[in-house]
Design a protein around this nucleic acid. Structure first.
Length: 813
RNA sequence: GCGGACGUGGUGAAAUUGGUAGACACGCCAGACUUAGGAUCUGGUGCCUCACGGUGUGAAGGUUCAAGUCCUUUCGUCCGCACCA
């Protein structure tokens, strides 16, 4: 039979479309599987990363469908975002037009891959209906105090003309354009993700089975919980009067309360209010003020790389336990955004404090002893035994921490505190192509949410995108409106939402995709959620995956759903590489999926993608291996001529020749392997494909047409998720697709009359023996010794080990 | 610095979880068929050795009858976070 992929693939894609073959059933009594790939941004064309992503989830979806599950495998578009605006500037195209044209084009491209998506549930996040529900959530969050507006220092990217959330700053640079991020004071909207810090951390435990460890660790570190003591340091009387009575104390946080007797100075962040006051009122000599101003100018990123640096502020605080005076410094390594922006410094037991103390010749008081400690060289930062710590002397660090916190709480000087590195999520973006933040600024009522019945607040179409400023801000009339509360003249908020807000709940919308009145039906969500298998890139380990987890919990608490975690199982696919580097246009090492499919067909593209590496690993592109995948399919199609039954034939295994038995065994081994990779969720398709190749090779070594027929019946079943078009074609012709149902493994094919045992001597393999399966241990050992006579000459056997159906090991001296 | 993942032929990778290392492919070599082949088919292919045999999973130790797999130390690669007090 000739293999003509373009014809066959077109044929089946047409049939699938016409028959709506992959729509989930409405029956909620059926067992379900929700299989989801991260939806794409419609950038214009699909790339190999998309092909890999969707091929993996499609294979999983097809498998479960064949196993009788009600499968939801939806698809959509993450269609708000900056590239649309950049394209508008460059090509003078409206972002909306550009986006939706891209969607149409990419939808056609993806169709050629034969993906089994539910077509009726597709949507784009820039659709006004989607915006409507999202704005409703935002208003509900505001009403529940989960969202607030605040003017504060933000991450600003000058190239993108917008604010970025902390998660979107990568090593001090913009995650999208790599430009260095600056700090800017601006008003913005924040979602209180910090309120969920503990739950987001705790629930990572429920994901241990289903998520890669790496991702869990990254989220854990990002949330960054630490436990310690928060207390206040009172300024000396002189210091209070120097500061004109405006300050009397400042707060610090420490995870090492056991070292508190070792405090020899304290340090404030350059942006600390006290420092600002001293500078603003010229309360220090000019040289110091200049030094502080210089420090303030250095970006956080550069500070991290800089040497420890500081200035004494000529004020003192009182040590809360000893009553001694402690000098206050400003230091470049203290962060304003964490733990009050001030630290107690214990140079003996903190390496940063140590370096600073050495540089400025500040005292180093040892309060923790340990044989490993050598304070002449470096700080001793591990636990140990307390000394020079009054009543706490002799306690071990762990005990002392508790005792000291208890003491602080008892006398009312401070309390136990849990701190998180996680910051609230800033969602304001000063851009046009996004979901408008549905608020109004009223001169008399202040910040007022839009009325729910007026949603969605949509974008004006008549804008000019220049890249200068926010087009909504510059629009002549759009922002003029009436206050939803008092009806007076008011101004619409011109910030739009971070696009990560849209991707934080799209998987819920797929559950009830076409409802015009609500975002989703509670029962639908209860049935379909959580996502049984989520597939996407590791680059979202923190960003999208953390936001989506948060959003799910927030919507739960707003009463919309009753799900705690959105994604039970996560597969992070590896990158597609060529010549050892990530495929990218700028490097010129891309492979065009369209060309690949035109040349070899979708099945070959899919087969290569799944065969070349396990999905979690990087996939190195190899043109001749693609060719090899094509040849396998062609060979597979070619051998169909050996099939002569239109159903699964009954075979009496005992009457078969050795080759025939071996072929059957290989066929059912492949089926076993296939079930295993889905069941264990390893999704190592490469091993299943290899097993099918072995089976085909074994079939080819015999001539029994019943064995051939059975082999094809099973192999078409196994390979359907990988190379669906040709499998549907062959299965339809040969078996009326009767084999696209669960197939029972015939255990008899694994039962063999003889077994091959390895004979090893001192663990080293010497010979192989083939023995009757009924042969007893003694006889087998005897047999083994005879075969290995030459190795045993002049040796004494001191031990004989027999591992049934595996090997014999003779230990000799 | 902290955390994570990982080191197996010329290459991509397997290895039933402690039991015959290198399955399956790519590549390469040889042969067959061909006017021809970058088509197809057959065979070979870890390394050293003519062979007998030796040796081999980054390195070094250890546990065990038996280690790619478990333990200790060490080297290297990749990724994430990075002065979080």
């Amino acid at each position: 039979m000739e293999y003509n992929p373009s014809k066959t693939e077109q044929k089946w894609q047409d049939i699938w479309r016409a028959q709506e073959a992959f729509e989930p059933k409405e029956d909620k009594a059926l067992p379900k599987k929700y299989i989801l790939s991260m939806f794409p941004y419609p950038s214009g064309r699909i790339h190999m990363g998309h092909v890999r992503n969707y091929t993996i989830s499609d294979a999983i979806a097809r498998y479960y469908r064949k196993e009788g599950f009600n499968v939801l495998h939806p698809f959509g578009w993450d269609s708000f975002g900056m590239p649309a605006e950049n394209a508008a500037i460059k090509h003078k195209l409206h972002p909306k037009k550009w986006t939706y044209e891209n969607i149409d084009y990419m939808r056609k491209e993806l169709a050629t891959l034969g993906l089994s998506f539910s077509k009726k549930r597709e949507f784009a996040t820039s659709d006004p209906l989607y915006t409507k529900f999202e704005q409703e959530f935002i208003i509900k969050m505001f009403e529940e105090g989960l969202l607030y507006e605040k003017r504060q220092s933000v991450n600003w990217c000058e190239t993108c003309h917008t604010v970025l959330a902390n998660e979107q700053v990568v090593e001090g640079c913009c995650w999208r354009c790599d430009n260095e991020v600056e700090q800017k004071q601006m008003p913005g909207y924040y979602i209180k993700i910090t309120k969920y810090a503990q739950e987001l951390l705790d629930d990572l435990k429920t994901l241990e089975e289903g998520w890669p460890k790496q991702v869990l660790t990254m989220q854990e570190n990002w949330i960054g919980r630490s436990e310690g003591l928060a207390f206040s340091l009172s300024l000396s009387d002189e210091a209070v009067s120097k500061l004109d009575g405006n300050f009397s104390a400042f707060d610090v946080f420490t995870t090492r309360p056991d070292t508190i007797y070792g405090v020899s100075y304290t340090a404030l962040a350059p942006e600390h209010e006290i420092v600002k006051y001293l500078v603003a009122h010229n309360l220090l000599d000019t040289q110091k003020i200049e030094a502080i101003k210089a420090m303030q100018k250095v970006s956080e990123k550069d500070r991290a790389l800089a040497d420890k640096e500081g200035v004494s502020l000529d004020i003192e605080v009182i040590h809360p336990l000893t009553g001694k005076r402690v000098p206050v410094w400003v230091a470049n390594f203290v962060l304003v955004g964490y733990g009050g922006g001030a630290v107690m410094a214990v140079p003996a037991h903190d390496q940063r404090d140590y370096e600073f103390a050495k540089k400025y010749d500040l005292p180093i008081h040892e309060v923790i002893t340990d044989p490993k400690s050598d304070l002449k060289k470096e700080a001793y930062t591990d636990n140990g035994v307390l000394v020079n710590s009054a009543d706490f002397d002799g306690l071990k660090s762990t005990k002392a921490k508790k005792a000291i916190i208890y003491h602080f709480e008892k006398v009312g000087l401070g309390q136990k505190q849990i701190n998180y590195k996680l910051r609230d999520w800033g969602i304001s973006r000063q851009r046009y192509w996004g979901a408008p933040i549905p608020f109004v600024h009223c001169p008399s009522c202040g910040l007022v949410p839009e009325k729910i019945e007026n949603l969605p607040v949509t974008l004006p179409d008549d804008v000019e995108i220049t890249g200068e400023g926010n087009p909504l801000e510059n629009h002549p009339t759009w922002k003029k409106c009436h206050c939803p509360k008092c009806g007076g003249n008011a101004t619409r908020e011109t910030d739009t939402m971070d696009t990560f807000v849209q991707s934080s709940w799209y998987f819920l919308r797929y559950c009830t995709p076409n409802d015009q009145t609500k975002a989703f039906e509670k029962e639908d969500v209860a049935y379909w959620m959580s996502v049984d298998q989520y597939v996407g890139g590791i680059e979202h380990a923190i960003l999208h995956l953390l936001y989506a987890r948060f959003f799910t919990k927030a919507l739960r608490d707003l009463g919309y759903i009753s799900v705690d975690e959105p994604f039970s199982n996560l597969l992070t696919q590896g990158m597609v590489l060529k010549d050892g580097a990530k495929m990218s246009k700028s490097k010129g090492n891309t492979v065009d999926p369209d060309e690949l499919i035109t040349k070899y067909g979708a099945d070959t593209a899919r087969l290569f993608t799944l065969f070349a590496a396990p999905p979690q690993k990087e996939l190195e592109w190899n043109d001749s291996a693609v060719e090899g995948s094509f040849k396998f399919i062609r060979r597979f199609v070619d051998r169909v001529e050996h099939v002569n039954a239109d159903h699964l034939p009954q075979i009496d295994h005992t009457t078969l020749s050795k080759e025939e038995k071996y072929a059957r065994k290989k066929v059912y081994e492949a089926l076993k392997k296939s079930d295993e990779i889905y069941k264990t969720r390893s999704f190592t398709f490469n091993t299943v494909i290899a097993a099918c190749m072995e089976a085909l090779n074994a079939l080819n070594a015999q001539k029994n047409s019943d064995v051939w027929s059975e082999g094809y019946f099973v192999l078409l079943h196994i390979l359907e998720p990988v190379i669906p078009h040709i499998c549907w074609e062959l299965s339809e012709t040969l078996f009326k697709r009767e084999n696209f149902k669960p197939i029972k493994i015939k255990e008899e094919v694994f039962v063999e009359d003889t077994i091959v045992l390895a004979v090893t001597i001192n663990g080293k393999k010497r010979e192989e023996i083939e023995v009757d399966k009924a042969l007893q241990k003694d006889a087998i050992l005897q047999n083994a010794k005879e075969v290995c006579a030459k190795w045993l000459e002049g040796k004494e056997i001191i031990k004989e080990i027999y591992v049934p159906s595996k090997l014999v090991n003779l230990v000799v001296k």
